[in-house]
């Protein structure tokens, strides 16, 4: 579905972009490892720390420990942060600082291959990180039910959505100064997306606004899956994340084309 959204399909050659990223990260293994420690930091600090201060919460009529409530929200946040750092920072560097993409386009690869290659990479990273996060959740007893396994694909979808949005966003950045704008979007998303408290605490109008946040949609989806509470609205949440991913990658591919091969 995502592939069809690209102006041209992209080809098998897009895998070389993946290969390139792998080669770079191999020499920066500390970054990869930090990605695996991140969930532990989240779960230990916010989960365990606040769990002692905040009592169990009712979620759809079931009483849930705060750690079990907050863990899916942290999973969503971690997926967002990983995707944003990778797609915005690293892509920006290659697009506008080192101009490495220009070199790639003088080879048989074209813009669609580059965009697709970055998506492959984002997916792979997301798959590994989400798995390690969910394993930590289970080990720390923060999984609400055995349905937590479904959080895996849902977290990957979250990463994908934010990667695609990040790819599009980074084409609008002009210099490192513009990264303040990224933080300006990312921080309120994190604070107001009902990731660490229920959305019902908000006044109605604010709750309606928060519903547009992809991070909220992801957190709500992951929470439902982790607790094994299935609702029809979850399909809507999936559809929303997929739609944003398609919009993001379509815009990104078009912008890449304009910047790299005008």
């Amino acid at each position: 579905m995502l592939l069809r959204a690209l102006p041209r399909f992209g080809s098998r050659r897009s895998l070389h972009v993946f290969e390139r990223n792998f080669m770079v990260y191999r020499s920066q293994w500390i970054m990869l490892v930090s990605g695996f420690f991140e969930p532990l930091f989240y779960l230990l600090s916010i989960g365990i720390g606040l769990n002692h201060l905040v009592g169990p919460l009712p979620v759809n009529g079931r009483l849930v420990s705060y750690a079990a409530f907050v863990a899916p929200g942290m999973l969503a946040t971690s997926a967002m942060n990983g995707a944003v750092i990778d797609s915005i920072f690293n892509t920006f560097f290659r697009l506008k600082i080192s101009h490495a993409y220009e070199a790639v386009l003088s080879t048989p690869l074209d813009v669609a291959d580059v965009a697709l290659g970055e998506v492959w990479w984002a997916l792979t990273r997301a798959t590994a990180y989400a798995a390690s996060f969910i394993i930590c959740m289970v080990l720390l007893g923060d999984a609400g039910s055995s349905w937590v396994v479904l959080c895996w694909p849902a977290a990957i979808l979250t990463s994908l959505t934010f990667s695609c949005l990040g790819l599009a966003a980074c084409t609008y950045l002009r210099s490192w100064q513009d990264f303040d704008t990224v933080a300006l979007v990312q921080l309120p998303l994190f604070l107001f997306s009902a990731t660490f408290f229920p959305i019902s605490l908000y006044p109605h109008w604010l709750g309606a606004l928060v519903a547009f946040s992809p991070l909220y949609q992801s957190a709500a989806l992951l929470r439902g899956l982790s607790l094994g509470q299935f609702e029809w609205i979850m399909l809507m949440r999936v559809a929303y994340l997929v739609a944003l991913a398609i919009a993001g990658i379509t815009l990104a591919a078009r912008r890449f084309q304009r910047i790299l091969a005008p």
């Binding site: 770079v24 020499s27 920066q28 080192s98 101009h99 490495a100 220009e102 070199a103 003088s106």
Partner: peptide, 13 residues
């Protein structure tokens, strides 16, 4: 193609 400005991968050897 040798572009006007170097477009090397700064992170690689």
């Amino acid at each position: 193609v040798v572009p006007q400005e170097d477009t090397l991968e700064l992170e690689l050897s």
